[in-house]
């Protein structure tokens, strides 16, 4: 028997969905409009703005930068984040409590402040070139996701399993690779995806770290909008959305499978 929903609650839920989905519908509509300016509802239908993306050299170049930065930054954050999460969980009793809060700071500090402080410390302070500081900045920006999501996985990991492996003759590092890592795989994949998406969508940190000749896609979108205000913006946004949705779908499928076999 279907559960009865109170009409007011039903209407409220419908409104929530409307507000969540309306901007997406408008963007998709605007990206198809056969006009030279952004408008909704679309006037005429065309895919030319989508093909225009690939004709604008700046979009292509910044998209590649964005993907590279997101991939390398996320990888770097996991390289720091997995051992950090491991230590925070394994030695929870021995370590001070504020230490785990430290790793969430990039989320707690306003992004614009975080971006500015990165500019002061990495680009100006260390004098690093634009590309490495972008990667390092993004790695720090997404570190909280690596530590927290991998940490959640480790929280349900029984560390006596690790001791069992050691008692059977497996040295510590090998134990980590062959026993701990396979059991937190789902968390590592989830952390990677979350961090990757956060990095690729980031504006406020990147805006401080990009420099002459090197920019990321979201910043290029902003620049393009200021100059042209044509539906290309909408179609790039739709593409970015599709990439995100696609990645999430892949995760859903893979994580769903690993959770089943766990």
């Amino acid at each position: 028997m279907p559960t009865r929903v109170h009409p007011v609650l039903g209407a409220f839920a419908a409104l929530v969905f409307l507000f969540l989905l309306a901007p997406l519908v408008i963007i998709v509509g605007a990206s198809l409009s056969d006009t030279t300016f952004l408008t909704f509802p679309p006037q005429g239908l065309t895919l030319r703005w989508f093909s225009n993306i690939f004709h604008v050299e700046a979009f292509r170049r910044t998209a590649i930068t964005s993907l590279q930065v997101a991939f390398l930054g996320t990888a770097l954050s996991l390289l720091i984040g997995i051992p950090a999460a491991y230590a925070l969980n394994r030695y929870r009793v021995e370590l001070p409590r504020w230490l785990s809060t430290l790793f969430v700071l990039p989320i707690l500090v306003p992004e614009i402040v975080f971006g500015f402080s990165l500019l002061k410390s990495i680009t100006i302070g260390l004098g690093l070139p634009v590309y490495p500081s972008l990667i390092l900045g993004h790695a720090l920006l997404v570190l909280p996701y690596s530590v927290r999501v991998v940490g959640a996985s480790l929280a349900s990991f029984d560390f006596s399993v690790e001791e069992a492996a050691r008692s059977l003759g497996c040295p510590p590092v090998k134990t980590f690779m062959t026993v701990v890592l396979p059991n937190i795989r789902a968390g590592v994949i989830a952390a990677f995806i979350l961090a990757f998406i956060t990095s690729i969508n980031d504006v406020s940190v990147s805006v401080f770290l990009t420099g002459p000749g090197i920019s990321t896609l979201p910043i290029q979108i902003l620049a393009h909008m200021e100059q042209f205000f044509d539906p290309t913006i909408a179609s790039v946004s739709v593409l970015l959305m599709l990439v995100t949705v696609g990645v999430m779908a892949v995760v859903e499928a893979t994580l769903g499978l690993t959770f089943l076999t766990k």
Binding site: D158, S160, V161, E163, A164, A165, S167, V179, P182, N183, K262
Partner: peptide, 12 residues
């Protein structure tokens, strides 16, 4: 050889 209270088998 160690036998644990919570078995500590390798789940994977």
């Amino acid at each position: 050889g160690l036998v644990f209270q919570n078995y500590a088998l390798f789940p994977h």
